[in-house]
Measured scan of single mutants.
Amino acid sequence: MAAGGDHGSPDSYRSPLASRYASPEMCFVFSDRYKFRTWRQLWLWLAEAEQTLGLPITDEQIQEMKSNLENIDFKMAAEEEKRLRHDVMAHVHTFGHCCPKAAGIIHLGATSCYVGDNTDLIILRNALDLLLPKLARVISRLADFAKERASLPTLGFTHFQPAQLTTVGKRCCLWIQDLCMDLQNLKRVRDDLRFRGVKGTTGTQASFLQLFEGDDHKVEQLDKMVTEKAGFKRAFIITGQTYTRKVDIEVLSVLASLGASVHKICTDIRLLANLKEMEEPFEKQQIGSSAMPYKRNPMRSERCCSLARHLMTLVMDPLQTASVQWFERTLDDSANRRICLAEAFLTADTILNTLQNISEGLVVYPKVIERRIRQELPFMATENIIMAMVKAGGSRQDCHEKIRVLSQQAASVVKQEGGDNDLIERIQVDAYFSPIHSQLDHLLDPSSFTGRASQQVQRFLEEEVYPLLKPYESVMKVKAELCL
């Protein structure tokens, strides 16, 4: 049975990233139509530049190519590739079939990587351009969430054990800070992308030097003109047959890092959902379990974690691919890159769409948070109580021993009897502590235990987050809708 299948058929496997999760716009960027249309555009740009620099290419040939950029006979191309065992030459023939007058000058002087690699770089750039505003929107939604809850005390956790208090907004800023680093890295790697350009079979530009009869300047002009037509500021000066596969490492490393950030955020949300302090959106008709109707599973956060793990592992592909590119190139890269580049971007696209949807509907339960604080705060307040007693004339050592005994009794009630923490009640009825009984409410005010959390939130948002989001103001209103 021949390899390949009808990918629109229910009898043929289709990647869930495309069929179930990723956005239509990201799927289109990695589609065959987008790819092969870009090949034709690159052939047109090459012909236009070659004509401008004096090669015998007519206006009629150029116009014929322009008129057929979208006229792609995919069936013919597939048949040609089956016959020739070469995808680029299959599309040269297919393009030439609908451009008979231009057929002889299509791909003039070029090698397969002229269309293959340059198209990949265009796709990487455009895919990054799709991700950047999506990530900015996630940051914006979380920034709104953090600002609104900047002063809401909550129990902090280290080692997932109760620690000092923080605020809900401050905790959210930990998430935002990681995503801001990801946004900066995505922008950097996007701006650092260079075009492969017009380089020939081993990167020496020998074929173009021959076409222009040894004119170095025209060869350099050709490279520059096509690079500018493709919208790049610069091209690699040095290439082998391909652009260095280190570029793929750079791009997928940034995406993998984004995956790590999203995994951490969504894990926190899942843990908070278990504590009943916070939940992701839950639709009115949504079913959490087929057997347990009360369940409210954090399905979206779980999906993000599941896909983020996949995204983090994909960076190993370009690392290994770059390491086995012998001399000017081997074909070890080809099949692998067809999979890992598309999957990385479709996965990143999915987790950003999902995280935006989550961040637009996060639900906080202040009463649950308050109750958990009441359970733990008495123990945390013991040092403040000791200091207040010393100020009232008591002995630190005597007070410490009193607190120690009462704390152990209260802990026994919590752990052995399943009761509430009654340390404060014990202190309130103990005559030894009568000098500070009137101060206990103040000493137990949760806001006095959150330090500068709310001020940190305000400063972080104003100095770091809002300036970073400013270039994306025009796209901030787009909502994230999930079908599944």
Results as ranks from 00 to 15, higher is better:
Arg194Cys: 09
Glu60Tyr: 10
Ile176Trp: 01
Ala322Val: 15
Ala388Cys: 05
Thr201Ile: 04
Lys224Pro: 05
Arg33Thr: 14
Glu64Asn: 13
Val138Trp: 10
Gly96Pro: 00
Leu311His: 01
Tyr365Trp: 15
Asp248Arg: 04
Ala348Asp: 01
Thr382Tyr: 08
Ile385Cys: 06
Cys340Lys: 01
Leu46Pro: 02
Asp191Ala: 08
Glu80Gly: 08
Phe345Asn: 12
Gln428Ile: 09
Ile57Cys: 04
Leu252Met: 13
Leu128Asn: 13
Asp422Gln: 07
Phe74Thr: 15
Phe282Cys: 01
Met380Phe: 06
Arg149Ile: 05
Phe327Pro: 02
Leu443Glu: 03
Ala291Phe: 03
Gln221Asn: 10
Thr38Phe: 10
Thr201Glu: 03
Leu252Gly: 13
Glu417Ile: 05
Asp32Tyr: 09
Ala150Met: 08
Leu275His: 13
Ala90Glu: 00
Arg309Phe: 06
Ser9Lys: 11
Phe208His: 06
Val198Leu: 14
Thr201Gly: 07
Arg270Lys: 00
Ala102Val: 08
Glu463Thr: 10
Arg245Asn: 01
Arg337Asp: 02
Ala2Glu: 09
Leu346Gly: 08
Leu362Glu: 06
Pro446Tyr: 08
Leu307Gly: 14
Arg171Lys: 05
Gln61Gly: 12
Tyr466Pro: 05
Leu314Gln: 13
Gln51Cys: 06
Gln241Asn: 01
His107Ile: 00
Ala90Val: 08
Val405Ile: 14
Ile139Asp: 02
Ser323Ile: 02
Thr313Tyr: 10
Ile122Phe: 13
Glu464Val: 07
Ala260Gln: 15
Val405Ser: 12
Thr244Ile: 00
Lys224Met: 10
Arg426Met: 08
Leu258Arg: 00
Ala110Leu: 07
Gly240Ala: 10
Arg396Asp: 01
Gln221Pro: 00
Arg33Met: 12
Arg300Met: 10
Ile265Thr: 13
Asp129Phe: 11
Cys27Gly: 12
Gly5Glu: 14
Glu80Thr: 13
Asn118His: 07
Leu444Ala: 03
Gln210Val: 09
Ala78Glu: 13
Thr313Cys: 14
Lys101Val: 11
Leu211Trp: 01
Ser438His: 10
Tyr114Gln: 03
Phe232Glu: 01
Leu132Cys: 14
Pro153Arg: 01
Tyr114Asn: 03
His97Ile: 14
Met225Thr: 03
Ile57Ala: 04
Ser207Gln: 03
Gln409Cys: 08
Ser261Phe: 02
Ile386Tyr: 04
Leu314Ser: 11
Ala78Met: 10
Pro100Met: 08
Arg194Lys: 13
Gly5Gln: 06
Gly418Leu: 04
Ala146Gly: 06
Glu48Pro: 04
Leu331Ser: 07
Ile351Pro: 01
Asp192Ser: 11
Asp441Met: 07
Tyr432Thr: 07
Ala78Pro: 08
